[in-house]
Amino acid sequence: MGLNKSRPIYEKLRIDPQGRAHLIVTDLEALPQDTIEANLALSNIEIWVVARIARGIAASPSGSRAFRSVADLLSHLSFHLAREPVGLRLYAAGTEAFLWDVANTARAAGLGKDEIFLTQAGSLRRRVYCTHCKSMNEDAVANIATCRACGARLFVRDHFSRRLAAFMGVMVDAEVPNEIPEIEVIYP
């Protein structure tokens, strides 16, 4: 897996001291402490989390904001980045698909490589792009996924597209129809 050049390499979350202000976003309900090497008590750090079904929104600590869903968070992020003055550093922590959704949102807002930092945390589940019907399939945990749009049985490749924020899925039984290898959960 380490030989696959399309797989990004992630680092622990560190605050860039060159930044004037810092925004950390995660698709988890709280920041994963084991992936953080930073003093989060600094004053100019804001944290956005996804607390599904409005759980814990009222209880979110100061400097932190909770969103109902990833989509909700990303749409607020896009709005926020278009208005934020220069000097912000953006950090994303969470599942790989989320990291690249954030990176692509940030890039569209004009942020460059040295203003965005990505830390993988939580589940290894994959977003799979069906290379046949071009649909996205969320939360694949096994080596084989079924495309929800066209029904193809997809082999989940290690080939990751940063632009699509997804792994490539190719029909697993293209050569011999219905010959499907054993299905194993490998991305828990």
């Binding site: 980045l81 208005r83 003055p85 220069v86 912000l88 004009g110 942020l111 203003e115």
Partner: peptide
Amino acid sequence: LLSAQKLNT
């Protein structure tokens, strides 16, 4: 002037 610039500049 510098502080007023957005992230896209």
